[in-house]
Design a protein around this nucleic acid. Structure first.
Lengths: 209, 209
DNA sequence: CGTTATCTTGATAAGTCTCAATGCAAGTGG
DNA sequence: CCACTTGCATTGAGACTTATCAAGATAACG
């Protein structure tokens, strides 16, 4: 059940006329694509539940994942659209479209949206530029452990090894090998391939920072 | 001759009181560092002449160059500052500080500043993630040939091989080797190490895109 | 229960980094 | 003016990392 064309725009209109009416949440099935309306300069998305990925197709057929989105995360739709991006559900996801860029400054000042995104991109620049696969994976796991924040007994990665690979810009095999290596080194436990329990956070931080 | 502390802020104040008064241009010697005031949330920089680099020190002692700035380019100071960045003159440079983020919307809407920067960072993400050294260099040369735009008889790179290396996130030796290779392949001429004449732009584009 | 997708591991090849040496050009001080 | 220094550019040799190709193991699913 995709968000239909211009649904977000209608949500925006509804909010403009009756500011107190909360926009209806939308659901995406696993693997489904979020439709980005043609005119979405002032629209943003807030994830209520689930996990999404921001994908960009590359000329050679591969894809790059520029971000994962979890509950509470927000992103400007125009920014994704203007770089040939798409937003896909990694797990069943619920989200809300809302107005940004001054149309709804109380809820989300446009500056903040830009600033946060710039910060995230900068971090990824440093990561992709100068970290090797092991360091990338360590940084990724630390980032996920913070953003997922599911308590001390480990966390579940909702995305596949392929997704992780496209996020870190390495091959899926390399992701696997480094998972295995980290387990062998006693940094992690992997009760199953999705569940991660960090055993030596300090070491991971030493590697990943 | 660095821009003194809070000079930019004073320029801002001057503009606010007398909008028609143009702020005084500032000059940097080759290699000099532009001072970034502590409070620069609403300040931006426009390059009048010369070339600057936006540098970020990394934990392992290396540096990353996130952008080169040429005449006409603008950049928000706070964005650089918030990522431990510095702005250094590659060549003697003249620049003007001005207000952004709504304080001076006519001159430069803050949104545009953010959007352009986001776009530039996205492009660099794609480059760093999935291009090899040869492709990076091809893309770099095409970018420089557009931004420098000095006519058909080639252009002069104002920055060193080390700067290029830190921009592309490869070693300076690799930059050299790929220059040499491109010359051997007949894609380029290098009358001297700074001057580039592109012989087969279509081939470069095929490699770099 | 078979089919498919995902995950993992191995072997090999390719690309890049590091270390080292040399060349070159500009600037400096005697 | 000339030796000298210094920084940048280039090239080579070797080590290391990662991608690619291939195959098997595991789990999800109709």
């Amino acid at each position: 059940m995709l968000i239909q064309r211009d649904t977000a725009a209608r949500i925006l209109d509804a909010r403009a006329s009756t500011p107190s009416a909360a926009p209806a949440p939308r659901r995406l099935r696993r693997g489904a694509l979020l439709h980005l309306p043609e005119r979405c300069d002032h629209l943003a998305l807030r994830v209520a539940e689930g996990c999404l990925r921001v994908c960009h197709p590359l000329l050679d057929g591969r894809r790059q994942i520029t971000d994962f989105l979890f509950a509470g995360d927000r992103i400007g739709l125009m920014e994704v659209r203007s770089h040939n991006g798409s937003i896909e559900a990694v797990t069943p996801a619920t989200m809300v479209a809302f107005a940004a860029e001054g149309h709804d400054p109380e809820e989300w000042p446009a500056d903040d949206l830009y600033r946060m995104r710039l910060g995230a991109l900068q971090s990824r620049l440093f990561m992709l530029g100068h970290k090797n696969a092991r360091e990338k994976l360590a940084a990724f796991l630390l980032e996920m452990s913070e953003r997922l924040a599911q308590g001390e007994d480990g966390f579940r990665l909702p995305m596949s090894r392929y997704d992780i690979a496209d996020y870190l810009c390495v091959s899926p095999e390399t992701v696997c090998r480094n998972f295995t290596q980290m387990v062998a080194d006693g940094l992690l436990m992997l009760p199953d391939s999705q569940t991660v329990r960090i055993l030596h956070r300090a070491s991971l931080e030493f590697i990943g920072r």
